[in-house]
Computed example of a mutant assay.
Amino acid sequence: MKRIIIDCDPGNGIAGANTDDGLAIALALASPLLSLELITTVAGNTPCETGAQVAKDLIVRLGLDIPVVQGATQALQEDPAPWRETLDKRVEKLELVKLWQGVRQPDAVMADGDDAAEAMGKLICDNPGEITLVAIGPLTNVALAMQRYPAMAESVAEIVIMGGVFALDDYIKDTNFGVDPEAAHYVLHSGATLTLVPMDVTTQTLLTQQDLTRLTDIDHPLTQFVRETLRPWIDYSMRTRRLPGCWIHDALVVAWLLNQRVACGIDYRVDIELREGATRGKSWRYRQPLRVDVGIPAHCGALVHVLHSVDNDVLLTIIQKAFASLKN
């Protein structure tokens, strides 16, 4: 059994907020091969307090004893205001709030603490080599934990990150790295064992309404949570992204921990742009040797394993098997 921490920004039940974090948490909870020992939340897809409320409400509904600790409310340096304007109010501007009509919102429950960096860093450093960190939001909490616990980079078994975008039409940067470029840069260069799951691969995933009905055809509070909260998001994605369903970015991260046949990866040198301008927050990668290397230092960027292709059928099968185990 793999011991994990999930650092996230869930928005299940919140109008206009992505639900893939909640699906990733549900997959981890359903899988007998994973032991979810801590959930931490960060400002990103949702404000930090909202994400903590979503996660804690789910844990309470399931009668579980997993601590939920909220963390950073804003990035290390990036101004949060433009991001919050876009992420929190876009659904209203598009007049699609109605899609969430009748969807249960999370109860106003209190998180188990407000120092995610401390909780994360202590658990990892107290258990060297035993904890895998699943980082599926901006990396602010992770960077703060590493600054407070210098041994964390070598103590964590692995950090699997959903973030970055390299060669995808209509994207210069993604939300997770864009919200806090400095934190992403810090973690990439920390020396920890890293696997990166960028949007280039997560946009190869797809969950349709028909898939959702099939995968959650089990009478259990966890599958009910997934079914209720993902239905409006799928409709939202179909209208705003012209997809036949929705991408399930973060679920791929957890699925890869369960079965690495779900995706293929290659080692790259990876970095992120920190300078002001249109490309701030943009991630980039290359493999050696470069055909043109003028002005580029040797070993520029951090060595990271990057996933680049996914088998969506395998992904959905992994989710289905995990949810089916809830009947036992």
Rank of each mutant, 00 (worst) to 15 (best):
G163V: 07
N176K: 05
A108I: 10
L207M: 11
Q105N: 13
G137M: 12
A116V: 08
M146V: 08
D107L: 14
E118M: 11
D180T: 06
T193W: 01
I124T: 02
V160E: 08
V165Y: 03
P181F: 00
R90V: 13
K93A: 14
V97Y: 15
A143D: 08
R90W: 14
A135S: 15
L96W: 08
D170L: 04
A151G: 07
D169K: 07
K122Q: 12
A157L: 09
L188G: 00
E158C: 11
M110F: 14
G113V: 13
T202H: 04
L168W: 06
K98P: 07
P128L: 08
E118A: 13
D114V: 13
P181T: 00
G137E: 08
G102Q: 10
A167Q: 07
G129H: 12
F166G: 00
M162T: 09
F166E: 00
Q147C: 13
L196R: 02
G102I: 04
I159L: 13
I161W: 03
E92I: 11
P106T: 12
A167D: 10
G102V: 04
T195V: 11
V197A: 06
V97P: 05
A117D: 09
C125R: 11
M120F: 01
V97A: 15
W100C: 13
V187H: 00
P150N: 10
P138E: 15
G178H: 03
A167L: 05
M152S: 05
L188E: 02
Q209S: 09
F166S: 00
T132Y: 05
G164P: 10
R148I: 07
D114G: 12
A135M: 11
Q105R: 15
K93F: 12
D107H: 12
V142A: 15
V160N: 10
Q147K: 14
V165I: 06
A184P: 02
G102W: 06
A111W: 03
D115P: 09
H185C: 03
A119H: 00
V156Q: 10
V165G: 01
L139A: 12
I136V: 14
A167S: 09
G102K: 07
K89R: 13
F166Q: 00
A157W: 02
L168F: 06
R148H: 12
E158D: 12
D200A: 00
E182W: 02
K93N: 14
L99S: 10
I172L: 01
P198M: 02
P150D: 09
S155F: 07
E158P: 05
T195Q: 05
D180K: 10
D180P: 01
